[in-house]
Every structure is written in C-alpha cells, then in structure tokens.
Design a protein around this nucleic acid. Sequence first.
DNA 1: GCCACTATTGCATGTAGTCGCAATAGATCC
DNA 2: GGATCTATTGCGACTACATGCAATAGTGGC
Lengths: 143, 143
Amino acid sequence: MSHDTWNYQDALRRDGYRVTPQRERIMDLVCQAGMRLSAQQICEAARSGPPAMNDATVYRNLRFLTERKLLRAIEQDGRTCYVLGGPAASHHHLICRRCGDEIEIPDDATSELYARLERRYGFRVDDDHLVLHGHCRACLATP
Amino acid sequence: MSHDTWNYQDALRRDGYRVTPQRERIMDLVCQAGMRLSAQQICEAARSGPPAMNDATVYRNLRFLTERKLLRAIEQDGRTCYVLGGPAASHHHLICRRCGDEIEIPDDATSELYARLERRYGFRVDDDHLVLHGHCRACLATP
DNA sequence: GCCACTATTGCATGTAGTCGCAATAGATCC
DNA sequence: GGATCTATTGCGACTACATGCAATAGTGGC
C-alpha cells in the first residue's frame, strides 16, 4: 500500500494539525522502505535528508503519527519499529517465545472475547493489534 | 500474601541461581510495601538500605525476578511497577483509556480464545496477565 | 570449615525516548 | 499577498533502563 493513494494530509488538517515537511518525510521513509523501520533507522535517515531534522522531532512525530493511526508501532525486543497504518486491516500477532516466529491472525479472532467482556463488565475493548506470546506448533513439538 | 510463607529461595537455588542479600532485600521491599512499587521507589530505598546497592543491580534483579515470576511487572504510563508474583492467581486487566480505571478479570476469561488459537494455529498462548484497553461502562455512557 | 567454580555485583558508560522553552513556520482570514 | 494565531521545531538537558568488565561472594563438594 502507498500513502499517496491515501490522503492523510487532509485528515490531519481537518483535525487542526499541520502538515509539515518533517511529517511528510517520515511518512515517505516508512512507505518507501516497504518494511518495518526502527525509530533509529528513521532518525538516521531523517538527520541528513531534507529537511534535516532533530531526533526529538522524529520521536515526537512517530508518536504523533502512531496516535493518529497513520503509522503503526511494533515492539521488537525493546526497540520500536514502524509500518504504515491507515486503512490497513487490523490484526493481531502470535509471537513464539522460543523461535521468535510471528504469526498474524485476523482481528476478528478476538471479537467473541471482546463481546463477552462487554456483556459481562460493560467494558468495550478497542485494542486492534494485540500481541500474544506463547509457543508455536514447531517448538511445542521439539522440546 | 507474604513471601515468607512461600519459599522462593529454594526455588531459585534449585534452578542454579543464587540467593543474594540484594535479591532478598528487593523481595522484602515489594512485600512490605503492600502495594505496587515503581522501579525508582525501589532503587531509592535500596540505595541506602543494607545492603547499599547500585541502581543497575536493582534493575537487573527486577528483570530477573520478574522473568522467574517471583515478581510481576505492571506498566504504568511509561514506568514499570512491581508487585509480588509467585503463586498468586493470574488474571487480566481492562484499562479505560479515558478515566484510567482498571478492572481485574479472571484469567479464564481468555481460555476459550486461547483454546481456539491452539486448535486453529497450533499456537499455545501463555500470557497470563493480558492488559486490554478500551472504555469502561461509565465512560461509554457519558460522551 | 575450606576451596573452587561461576553467578552476581558495582561502576562507568551507553541507548531509547521524553520534555521545557524560545524560535520558526503552516493555516486561516482578510 | 500580508497579518495573525498557535502548532511545531530545534536544542539541550534529562529519565528509565541496559550493558561490558573486573572484582566479589554464594554454593556445593570435600
């Protein structure tokens, strides 16, 4: 998916935020990479590129863009990586504690649980990128 | 619950780890507090107390004790807090994004989901302290 | 009780990310 | 196009936590 086909700029302006060259650069970097980029990779690229920007600005904008769902943050052993967010289908992850393998599962896997929690506690969960840990089929089979 | 009624020392020794005064002090602090303590609170108390210990030692042991389930870590706006772990019943948390209220729910709330994930993907989840975010009944009612 | 083995500690230093504040620059209105 | 209003940036300092390495001290075997 490209962020060109998706008008995130107007969405920001509509909400009273500004579209700055710094924000566009970060979106471009994440999009062009085509893979998850770590905060440091983005900082490094952004320090030199035009416009040359400060690490604090990068971090602030990564948080900002993630909160507005334009990016999506993924924790990966202590560091944070980013991929394009936006209209992407939400989904959850299963991560194996042993081999580190990562399985994506559809977001409706949790809908039954969420519905039950709402019935029982009146609480409406909205986490759409759960990360669950455990052991995958292969690692369960080989102790 | 007290950690005296629960022989965590032998559990450590059995696994080839050592029971050091530093580790015992940290366990004592968390137990006597009777409430969740932040890493900094523990550092501060441990710096002066006998044995006087280094912050790095505290952090290393908090991680160590948490990995061995003798303590349990709770994230709280960017900081980590700790409570006694051990034989305590496991449970999950629902945290309201608006009022910050925290609801504890029994750990078997997720057993149906976990069973389904194992059937469908061969993946056995073992997270026993899930933290789910959303909105509580009161906040849903008052927009 | 003493020894040897190695897990653990203390210290200094490194890393990821945050924050306060003055200066800059998008967006809107005219 | 210019004035204005305030969101955003850059900078430097700061926080929470991690790590490499040499020194220390639990533990199990005798």
